Simulated assay, not measured.
Amino acid sequence: MAKLNQYQKYSNLIKTEAKRIGFSTCGIAKATFLEEEAPKLEQWLKNGYHGEMKYMENHFDMRLDPRLLVNGAKSVISLSYNYFPEKEQNLDSYKIAKYAYGQDYHHVVKSKLKELLNFIQEQIGEVNGRAFVDSAPILERSWAEKAGLGWNGKHSLLIQKELGSYFFLAELILDLELDYDQPFQTDHCGTCTKCIDACPTEAILANNTIDGSKCISYFTIELKNEIPSEVKGQFEDWMFGCDICQDVCPWNRFSKPHNEPLFNPQPELLDMTKSDWEEITEDVFRKVFKKSAVKRTKFTGLQRNIKFIKNT
């Protein structure tokens, strides 16, 4: 019984500190092999839903077993970090997914995770662990569901009753045994199909599955070649990423603006019009997207996307 109390004490300590650092929610699951997810991932890859994202085929076993990422792993701590903006872009604009308004979340959230890991090591002792923010072969939404944070919506994104879905997920994998949360059991999407109906490229399939090779985010970010002509006229002005499935989700009426100054956009970004984007120079691109995730698509990639949308 004393040991159990110690696990609870450590878990409470970690959750309290996570909240203080700025994470919205924190849950903990036992590090095990993801048995149910294995056949689903295999089929998803067989169906070619990853398109040209060939890296998704790598490290299959690692994606399913956190113990291959951290020796002796016992716990997966899942955390969410809100990015819902207070203000959105000008209506007369080519659109950017809200997650990319400010500085690159990989760096911002990773530094918070490292702060939490340092705290754990200082307070608890010799703990080996690694921090992940969409940066390694880990099925983050599965772990978040197992840690009780929320459920996977029909658009395959994690939804939380109190927050909606505009948040990043992050993980700490530790070789420390902790008190584990109950997996989230209830799917609160019910019979709603708003996200499926609203997706212009029909990328959202049955059984909470996404055909990544049809997603606007895939075409505007991941695809390095020319965008196929068969999707002309279907982007609804999205030039980097897409929020359509989240914007129509009824649960996102509960989204609250974030408190992270590093996620605030450069002031000119929100006011730029379509003609501003069409005439954007590389210097302006560098200024507006300094330290931004949009740099992934590069200036030439953004130009390609704008041209594709404009000529449809």
Rank of each mutant, 00 (worst) to 15 (best):
L4F: 12
L269R: 10
T312Q: 15
L169Y: 00
N264W: 05
G72S: 14
K19N: 12
A73K: 04
A97I: 06
T193L: 13
T25P: 08
L158H: 01
K30N: 10
N252M: 02
L64P: 08
D179G: 00
F285V: 01
I227S: 08
F132K: 01
C199F: 02
G51F: 09
E57N: 11
A2D: 14
Q89F: 03
N252D: 09
R296V: 09
G125K: 10
A29D: 07
L169P: 07
Y99H: 13
L158M: 02
A203I: 03
Y49G: 02
W44D: 04
H106T: 01
K307P: 00
A97Y: 08
V248Q: 03
E278V: 09
K214G: 02
Q121C: 07
I210S: 06
F219I: 02
K290C: 06
P261L: 05
M62H: 14
G233L: 11
I204R: 10
P265R: 12
E42F: 11
E42I: 09
N252S: 06
V70N: 03
P137D: 07
Y101D: 02
S255N: 07
S78K: 00
L13Y: 04
A29Y: 11
Q121H: 07
F167T: 06
K256D: 13
K154A: 10
H188T: 14
L176N: 00
E236V: 00
N264K: 15
Q6K: 15
K9C: 06
K30D: 08
E126Y: 07
A31T: 07
M239N: 05
S275T: 11
T25L: 15
K310V: 04
K291V: 03
I244T: 11
I306L: 11
S165C: 13
F84N: 13
T32G: 00
A18L: 12
K310G: 05
D243C: 02
E115P: 00
K224F: 06
R63F: 00
I138G: 06
V288C: 04
Q303L: 06
H106Y: 11
K161W: 11
S142W: 11
T16C: 13
E145C: 09
E278L: 12
L117T: 04
K214R: 15
K287H: 12
T32P: 00
S75R: 09
T186H: 13
